[in-house]
Design a protein around this nucleic acid. Structure first.
Lengths: 233, 233
DNA sequence: CATTTGTGAACTGTCGACAATCTTCACGTC
DNA sequence: GACGTGAAGATTGTCGACAGTTCACAAATG
């Protein structure tokens, strides 16, 4: 899990960026990771002073990191009371999926109008990667690469703002789903379910892509929200 | 222009919120207003030390305010070089409109399925307000209330996250359009063009609402982007 | 004259400190 | 036993300060 705000997707530059010397960004990464692997659980308070002590810095960069995460929706702050890990309920997760669907369908529609064969090949290769990971039982990595596939698709829509939103949403979904602690479906089936999307893209069939993608997304949405409702509500 | 992050749109609460005692929020409001009325122009540097001096505070709350505006997309920061007013180009404005269209159409579709007659009446009343303002020549206020109409529509879609995004987008569009310094169309026609939307809503005709709303939004998009391309490109 | 180098001013990132506020928890009252 | 009161401790919002970096501009070089 890399830096949130920038360059998690290098564009093949001559030199790679130096590791962000920025304290706040590194702190944000750490907190993000802590949320991801459950060291920080939703609703829990995140005290700046304590975090600063643990990290050996002053409170200023910690504050900035938390504010950054707040703007990403992972942390909420109550004035004069501090920061807390945002706890999603099932309804909110449903809202997030709703938004994601809206954005991704829109991006996909734009993508299909301008996509090249090379683009489709790249996406197909990514699906093959998903299948390999499913066979090898690397669930965590498969989830990561699954999001990457959908991000690639969004990126082909050629609206950077939509892509950034997708990134945010993906982070929030991962944070929310991390709570479940288990997969919601058979990894191999998940990997395979991308094939129809590749097909529709190759044929540049916008209508079919839309309906298949919608089904694809609603499948995950339905399962995750249902699981979440059982666990937490 | 009120506080960015919260409750600039009270949903008929019992008491209005106390003026945010938070320094950072008030500073953010000031900067926002300065961008809105052209005292800060796109690309211009915003030095935190200088701002702090002018406002008589320390740099800490100024920093927070600028970071907040950064997360809203109005300010960009280059590490170790400072904050700058984000300058939109025509392509980016087009992207923003694209996103807005995507969100608003989605929200409208959800809204039409659950809207009540009372809701439609409220929207219709808002349109009447627009017409009054157009007749009185209160352009600035008309623009504000026009966004409010579309916000109400989004809110009926019942996805708070979408509404928050709409607010952000509206702020960015207003900041971008402020540069033009002139209206892009006849105020009366703009006000009137909302009538067909009310009609479609009253009949709960989702398909018609979608196509009318799309046309409504693309009209503004087309004109603004074209003007912008002439001026700045 | 164009380009590079050097210098000082201004600025950002980070720090530690203080006052105001919030939370906790024991205590007393009904 | 439930509930309001108040003091102690911890935490936030804000502040001023310092070091390292960047910017603007003058001097030097080809």
């Amino acid at each position: 899990m890399t830096n949130i705000d920038k360059a998690s997707h290098p564009d093949s530059a001559l030199f790679s960026e130096l590791p962000s010397a920025d304290l706040a960004s590194r702190i944000a990464d750490q907190v993000l990771q802590a949320i991801g692997d459950g060291r920080l659980i939703p609703g829990q308070k995140v005290a700046e002073a304590q975090l600063a002590r643990e990290m050996g810095t002053s409170r200023a960069p910690v504050r900035e990191a938390l504010r950054l995460l707040e703007s990403q929706g992972l942390i909420v702050s109550h004035p004069r009371r501090g920061f807390f890990v945002h706890s999603y309920d099932a309804d909110e997760l449903d809202d997030i999926y709703d938004l994601r669907e809206c954005l991704e369908l829109h991006a996909a529609e734009a993508a299909v109008a301008r996509i090249t064969d090379a683009d489709v090949d790249r996406l197909a290769a990514q699906v093959e990667l998903l299948k390999r990971l499913a066979q090898d039982g690397q669930m965590q990595e498969q989830v990561t690469q699954d999001y990457e596939f959908h991000r690639m698709l969004c990126a082909l829509g050629d609206n950077m703002r939509v892509v950034r939103l997708f990134d945010q949403i993906a982070t929030q979904l991962r944070a929310g789903i991390a709570l479940l602690g288990r997969n919601y479906d058979d990894p191999w089936e998940i990997a395979q379910s991308h094939d129809v999307l590749i097909d529709a893209l190759r044929q540049k069939d916008a209508a079919r892509l839309r309906s298949e993608l919608k089904e694809h997304l609603e499948e995950a949405r339905f399962q995750v929200v249902a699981l979440f409702r059982n666990d937490n509500g």
